[in-house]
Lab assay of single mutants.
Amino acid sequence: EAHAAIDTFTKYLDIDEDFATVLVEEGFSTLEELAYVPMKELLEIEGLDEPTVEALRERAKNALATIAQ
């Protein structure tokens, strides 16, 4: 499951495998979680700032909209 989540994140969020791995290690496994989890939870991840989190959430929401079509 972790590998599938990493693949999904790299494909749809335009991030590298290392960043995707950090997200999975922090407990995220779906685009929905990244799109809708409280921003505070993402900001608790070391190295993430508000602009990065906002961009990540926007990419996740856009990916979900694209997949739904």
Rank of each mutant, 00 (worst) to 15 (best):
Arg59Thr: 05
Ile45Thr: 03
His3Asp: 09
Gly27Cys: 03
Ala5Asp: 03
Ala35His: 02
Asp18Pro: 08
Ala35Phe: 07
Leu23Asp: 00
Tyr36Ser: 13
Thr30Lys: 07
Glu50Tyr: 13
Glu50Gln: 11
Val24Ala: 07
Thr30Ser: 10
Gln69Leu: 07
Ile6Ser: 03
Ile45Asn: 03
Thr8Asn: 08
Asn62Met: 13
Glu44Thr: 13
Leu42Ile: 07
Glu1Thr: 12
Pro38Lys: 07
Asp49Trp: 04
Asp16Thr: 13
Asp14Tyr: 12
Lys11Cys: 06
Lys61Gly: 04
Ala63Glu: 03
Glu17His: 12
Glu1Ala: 13
Gln69Ile: 09
Pro51Thr: 11
Glu58His: 09
Thr21Phe: 12
Val53Trp: 14
Arg59Pro: 00
Glu32Arg: 09
Ala2Arg: 14
Leu23Lys: 01
Ala5Phe: 07
Val53Gly: 11
Glu44Ser: 14
Thr52Pro: 01
Leu43Gly: 04
Thr10Ala: 06
Asp18His: 14
Asp7Ala: 14
Asp14Arg: 08
Lys61Ile: 12
Val22Ile: 13
Lys61Phe: 08
Leu64Lys: 02
Asp7Ile: 14
Glu58Gly: 07
Leu56Met: 06
Gly47Ala: 06
Glu32Gly: 06
Leu43Thr: 05
Val53Cys: 08
Leu42Asn: 03
Ala68Thr: 09
Asp49Tyr: 04
Met39Pro: 07
Ile67Ser: 05
Glu33Leu: 10
His3Asn: 10
Leu64Arg: 02
Phe28Leu: 05
Gln69Ser: 11
Ala20Glu: 00
Val22Trp: 15
Pro51Val: 13
Leu42Gly: 03
His3Gln: 15
Val53Ser: 07
Val22Asn: 06
Val24Gln: 04
Glu17Ala: 12
Glu44Lys: 15
Glu54Leu: 11
Glu44Trp: 09
Asp18Arg: 13
Ala35Trp: 05
Ala63Met: 05
Gly47Val: 05
Thr66Leu: 15
Leu56Val: 04
Ala65His: 10
Thr52Ser: 08
Glu46Ala: 13
Phe19Lys: 04
Val53Asp: 00
Ala4Phe: 11
Tyr36Arg: 09
Gly27Ser: 02
Gly27Thr: 01
Thr8Met: 15
Glu25Cys: 13
Ala20Cys: 02
Phe19Asp: 03
Gln69Thr: 09
Thr10Cys: 08
Ala68Asp: 08
Glu17Pro: 10
Asp49Val: 04
Asp18Gly: 13
Glu44Tyr: 10
Glu44Leu: 14
Ile45Gly: 02
Asp18Tyr: 14
Gly27Asn: 02
Ile45Trp: 04
Met39Lys: 10
Arg57Ser: 05
Ala20Tyr: 02
Glu54Asn: 12
Glu26Arg: 15
Leu48Tyr: 05
Gly47Arg: 07
Ile15Ala: 02
Leu43Gln: 05
Leu23Ser: 00
Leu31Phe: 04
Leu48Arg: 02
Ile45Met: 05
Val37Gly: 14
Lys40Ser: 13
Leu42Thr: 03
Ala20Met: 02
Asp7Val: 13
Gln69Glu: 11
Arg59Val: 04
Thr21Val: 08
Leu43Ser: 05
Glu46Met: 12
Asp49Glu: 06
Glu41Ser: 10
Leu34Met: 05
Leu23Cys: 01
Gly27Phe: 03
Ala4Pro: 10
Glu44Gly: 13
Leu23Met: 03
Pro38Gln: 08
Ala4Asn: 11
Arg57Cys: 04
Ala55Lys: 12
Pro51Asp: 12
Phe19Gln: 06
Ala55Asn: 09
Ile15Thr: 02
Lys11Phe: 13
Glu33Phe: 06
Leu56Ala: 01
Leu13Phe: 02
Glu41Trp: 13
Leu13Met: 04
Glu17Leu: 12
Arg57Phe: 03
Glu33Lys: 11
Ala2Asn: 12
Phe9Thr: 00
Thr30Pro: 00
Ala60Asp: 01
Ala35Leu: 14
Glu1Gln: 12
Glu58Pro: 01
Glu44Ile: 12
Arg57Tyr: 03
Ala5Met: 09
Arg59Phe: 04
Met39Ala: 09
Ile45Leu: 08
Val22Ala: 10
Thr30Val: 03
Glu54Trp: 08
Leu13Gly: 01
Ala60Arg: 01
Thr66Glu: 12
Phe28Lys: 01
Glu54Lys: 15
Ala35Met: 09
Glu54Val: 15
Asp7Gln: 14
Ala35Ile: 13
Arg57Thr: 05
Asn62Trp: 09
Phe19Tyr: 06
Leu31Ile: 08
Ser29His: 13
Ile15Glu: 00
Tyr12Trp: 15
Pro38Val: 06
Phe19Asn: 02
Lys40Pro: 06
Thr8Phe: 10
Glu58Thr: 13
Ala68Leu: 09
Glu46Gln: 11
Leu13His: 00
Val53Ile: 12
Ala2His: 13
Thr30Cys: 05
Asp49Leu: 05
Ala63Arg: 04
Glu1Leu: 10
Phe28Pro: 01
Glu33Pro: 00
Val53Lys: 04
Thr21Tyr: 13
Leu42Tyr: 04
Met39Asn: 07
Thr52Trp: 08
Asp16Tyr: 04
Lys61Pro: 01
Met39Cys: 06
Arg59Trp: 06
Lys40Tyr: 11
Glu58Tyr: 08
Ala55Pro: 01
Leu56Ile: 09
Asp7Cys: 14
Glu46Ile: 14
Leu13Ser: 00
Phe28Asp: 00
Val53Leu: 10
Glu50Pro: 10
Arg57Leu: 10
Ala55Gly: 07
Lys40Val: 09
Leu56Asn: 00
Val53Thr: 05
Ala55Met: 14
Met39Trp: 06
Ala35Arg: 03
Phe9Trp: 02
Leu34Pro: 00
Glu17Ser: 11
Met39Asp: 05
Tyr36Val: 09
Glu17Asn: 10
Lys40Leu: 09
Thr52Met: 12
Arg59Gly: 05
Gly47Asn: 06
Asp7Met: 15
Phe19Ala: 05
Asp14Leu: 14
Thr10Trp: 05
Val53His: 02
Asp49Asn: 08
Asp7Phe: 12
Thr52Ile: 09
Leu34Tyr: 01
Leu43Ile: 07
Ala60Cys: 04
Glu33Asp: 11
Leu43Glu: 03
Ala2Ile: 13
Ile6Ala: 05
